[in-house]
Simulated scan of single mutants.
Amino acid sequence: MVKRIAVDLHYFPNLEFFAAIADAEELIFFPEERYQRQSYFNRTQIRLANKTGTLSVPIQGRRPRLSLQKIKIDYTQNWAKIHLRGIQSAYGKAPFYEYYFPYFEKVFSQNTESLWDLNWDLLTICLKLLGMPVKMRVYNKDEDLSLMQDIRGQLVPSVPFSEREYYQPESYFQLFGLDFDPNLSILDLLFCEGPASKSIVLKSVKKH
């Protein structure tokens, strides 16, 4: 039987996300669900020289009561250039930066209108670079949800990852300082560890 996981779509998901879906063969997404504030749908965390920094994608409208697929990015703010500059500042000296950065730079240059589409494109690239051959698709209303593992609404910024059952930090090389910073954006792992990233994700799956 195919291992399916119902999951939320995040912006440059963190390591807990990839640990949670590590054994999935299919990821099922739900574009018609309502947008929730204080979620990972439009934010991620990266490691800067002396702190952890948050990258947030601005969206149109205040507290929009819309489905996720209808959330539009606010391009009146120069967010794409800010994010690219932030990523460059954080990881420009990382071992695998020059190999992976062009993939993401290309997506940002497309000025994608929908945040859903942007996140979908970025996750597709991240899974490819990780070497995780999981399929991504949208939920079909005729499907039986009981036949898939449903982790929607669980991976949220307001609750520490240590209180959930998916991610156990596995340390790896990071730039800036000696203290390991767990559960950052997948960008941190990819730029710092390159082809070794997948094995580190697998080692970080919480044992039960």
Rank of each mutant, 00 (worst) to 15 (best):
Y75K: 11
Y167S: 06
I28K: 02
T52W: 03
S158A: 14
M148F: 02
V2H: 07
K203D: 05
C192N: 09
F104N: 00
I82S: 15
Q88I: 03
Y166M: 09
P133C: 09
L68P: 03
F18V: 03
Q69N: 12
Q110F: 09
K72H: 11
T112Q: 15
S199A: 14
S39H: 03
Q149T: 12
Y75M: 10
R152D: 04
E26W: 03
E165H: 10
K51E: 11
N78M: 12
N50R: 15
T112G: 08
R43N: 06
E113A: 15
S199Y: 06
N50D: 15
Q45M: 09
I200T: 01
G131F: 03
H83T: 00
K198G: 01
Q36K: 13
L129Y: 02
Y166W: 12
T44G: 11
Y97E: 00
F104G: 08
I59M: 07
V107R: 12
R43Y: 01
H83L: 12
A6C: 13
Y103D: 07
Q174L: 08
M148N: 06
P58T: 03
R164S: 05
K135H: 11
R164P: 04
Q154A: 08
I73V: 12
D74F: 10
E26Y: 01
I28R: 09
D179V: 13
S158I: 08
Q69C: 12
L66G: 05
I5M: 07
S185T: 06
P169K: 08
V201N: 02
F161S: 10
Q149I: 09
R152Q: 08
A49Y: 13
Y100E: 01
V2G: 02
A20D: 02
D179L: 10
R63E: 06
I71W: 06
G92N: 13
E165R: 14
K198Y: 10
L178P: 13
N140A: 05
F180M: 07
A94I: 14
P133S: 13
A24M: 05
S162I: 10
S39R: 03
E26P: 01
H208L: 13
D142W: 09
P169N: 10
A90D: 00
Y139P: 04
G86V: 04
R137A: 01
R164V: 06
D188L: 05
E16Y: 00
F108N: 00
A22L: 01
K106Y: 13
L123G: 00
Y172K: 10
P157V: 02
T52S: 14
S162N: 07
R34Q: 00
I186C: 04
K72Q: 12
M148E: 01
F191I: 02
S162R: 11
S114W: 03
F96S: 11
T76L: 06
Y40S: 04
P58C: 04
M132P: 06
S199N: 11
I21A: 00
Q168W: 06
E170N: 08
